[in-house]
C-alpha cells in the first residue's frame, strides 16, 4: 500500500536518511524500530510531506506522493499522529477533532459530525471531556485525542510516531490495545516506536533502522527478541 524506495533526506548539512526502502501492506501494522537519531521521525516527516526527500520515491496506492505538499498528503489519505501528541492545548477536545477533519469539514459538515460521534463511542473519555481544553488532559487522554484527531481526516494509513513516549506503562498498554482495535477495523498502520517489546507485540512486520538505513526487515520472531531490542536501543556498533 505504501512503498518507500531508496529515499535520501537531509536536515541542512546532516544526512538523516541514506537510502531507506520499506513497504507497509494494507491492513497490517508495520513497525519501525531503531535507536535515537536513526532517522525514524525524519522518515515519518518525509512520507508526510513535511520534509522533502532529495532522492528516492514514495508511492501510496501506486501514486507518487514524494512531491506533494503536507496538505496534499493528508488529502491522499495519510494521517500523522505526531510524537508528544501535539494537541491544540487551549482548544476544546471537540475543536481538536474538528481541526483533524480540516480538509473535509467545509464540504462534509454532517459527515464530520457523525465521525466525531463515532470517535466518542470509541473513546468515551473524550466524550466526557468534550468541552475541556485539550492541554488539561492527562498524557494518555491526549494520546487518544491525537489518535482520534488523526482518524478524523478519514485516512487509509496512519503514521504513528512514538505513541508510548512519556506515558506510564499501564497507559501504554491501553494505547497499544487501542492501536490493535483500530487496526482490527482495517486501518493500515506504520508505527515508530522506541518500546520494542510493545511494538513487536502488535507488529505484523518490522524494520530496523540504523544510521538512516534499513538493517533488518522481517516478522516478529524472525530475529531473536533480545537481539532486536538490543539493536533497537543501541544500534550495532
Amino acid at each position: 500500500m505504501l512503498t518507500v524506495g531508496d529515499v535520501f533526506t537531509s536536515y541542512g548539512m546532516i544526512k538523516a536518511l541514506n537510502g531507506v526502502t520499506l513497504s507497509a501492506s494494507e491492513g497490517e501494522i508495520t513497525c519501525l524500530l531503531g535507536p535515537n537519531g536513526a532517522g525514524k521521525t525524519t522518515l515519518m516527516f518525509t512520507i508526510a510531506g513535511i520534509l522533502r526527500a532529495q532522492a528516492g520515491s514514495i508511492k501510496f496506492d501506486g501514486q507518487s506522493i514524494e512531491r506533494l505538499s503536507a496538505a496534499k498528503v493528508v488529502e491522499a489519505g495519510i494521517a500523522l499522529v505526531p510524537e508528544n501528541r501535539l494537541v491544540f492545548p487551549t482548544m476544546s477536545v471537540e475543536e481538536n477533532l474538528e481541526a483533524g477533519a480540516f480538509i473535509r469539514v467545509a464540504k462534509d459538515r454532517a459527515g464530520v459530525d457523525d465521525d466525531i460521534e463515532r470517535m466518542y463511542m470509541r473513546f468515551p473519555v473524550l466524550k466526557e471531556r468534550r468541552e475541556q481544553m485539550a492541554g488539561t488532559l492527562s498524557g494518555g487522554e491526549q494520546q487518544m485525542l491525537a489518535l482520534a484527531r488523526a482518524l478524523m481526516s478519514r485516512p487509509r494509513i496512519l503514521l504513528m510516531d512514538e505513541p508510548s513516549v512519556g506515558l506510564a506503562p499501564l497507559i501504554v498498554e491501553d494505547i497499544f490495545q487501542i492501536i490493535r482495535d483500530v487496526n482490527a477495523d482495517g486501518m493500515t498502520i506504520l508505527l515508530v516506536e522506541q518500546n520494542a517489546n510493545m511494538a513487536l507485540s502488535v507488529a505484523d512486520k518490522f524494520y530496523l533502522l540504523e544510521h538512516g538505513r534499513v538493517t533488518f526487515e522481517g516478522a516478529p520472531g524472525e530475529l531473536e527478541q533480545d537481539e532486536v531490542i538490543r539493536r533497537a536501543y543501541l544500534g550495532t556498533e
Binding site: A70, P89, E95, A99, F102, A106
Partner: peptide, 23 residues
C-alpha cells in the same frame, strides 16, 4: 468558519496544524 478553525489551530501549534493538512 473553517478559516477560523484553521487560524486558531495554527495559533496553537503551527506544526500540528500542518499535520492536519492546514497550510
Amino acid at each position: 468558519t473553517t478559516f477560523g478553525l484553521a487560524l486558531r489551530a495554527v495559533s496553537e501549534s503551527s506544526d500540528a496544524a500542518k499535520y492536519m493538512g492546514i497550510n
